[in-house]
């Protein structure tokens, strides 16, 4: 299957990066940089900052690929987690007051549909969509917004116009419900 083959190729390349093969890093970059740049832009909004973070992401991949375990995580999940965490850390350090990514980032990042790597498993995608669909609307969009835009509890509460404590308990309850649904 095409998806399986591409996922395997990326996983193999990551493992070669773990052995210090710099050409394999270029391979990983070519396969994933557009997606990861989209992830950074969506959280940070600002292109030059996103470029800095994207650079950090692949340097981190170069250093940490030895710890990538294909049995524990799919390669794109592992890479996207690095991109998201780096972007969130940068956003929090640079703009602690900011609570929404600037519009530009949203517009840019959503412009192109996935063409480079669609490495997500379709079954997993459908199951997550189904389970998220089972949550109430404010919780559903809050969880998506946290994951994709890097919003904090505080930002989400402000956005929804509810007290912080309310947002926290909404989301925590929704997460437990989601877990039950996904494990079913």
């Amino acid at each position: 299957m095409e998806l399986e083959r591409r996922r395997q190729a990326l996983s193999d390349a990551l493992q070669r990066v773990g052995q210090g093969d710099a050409a394999a890093l270029k391979d990983v970059y070519d396969r994933t940089s557009a997606k990861l740049f989209g992830v950074c832009l969506r959280i940070l909004g600002e292109p030059s900052e996103s470029e800095d973070v994207l650079q950090e992401v692949y340097v981190t991949v170069w250093r940490r690929a030895g710890g990538f375990d294909p049995a524990r995580a799919s390669p794109i999940t592992w890479l996207a987690a690095i991109a998201r965490n780096r972007s969130i850390d940068r956003a929090r350090a640079a703009h602690p007051e900011r609570y929404r990514p600037i519009e530009q980032g949203l517009a840019v990042a959503d412009a192109a549909p996935s063409a480079q790597v669609n490495l997500e498993n379709e079954e997993d995608r459908q199951r997550l969509a189904h389970c998220l669909g089972g949550l109430d609307e404010p919780q559903q969009s809050a969880i998506k917004s946290a994951f994709l835009d890097g919003c904090t509890y505080e930002a989400l509460a402000r956005e929804a116009g509810v007290p912080l404590g309310t947002m926290k308990s909404w989301i925590r309850r929704a997460l437990l419900k989601l877990r039950v649904c996904l494990e079913r």
Binding site: F37, V39, T77
Partner: peptide
């Protein structure tokens, strides 16, 4: 991470310089 991973599919791709 694995549970939420499919959401990454919603993020558009942008080729970096």
């Amino acid at each position: 991470e694995q549970r939420f991973s499919p959401l990454t599919g919603d993020v558009g791709e942008v080729t970096p310089p």
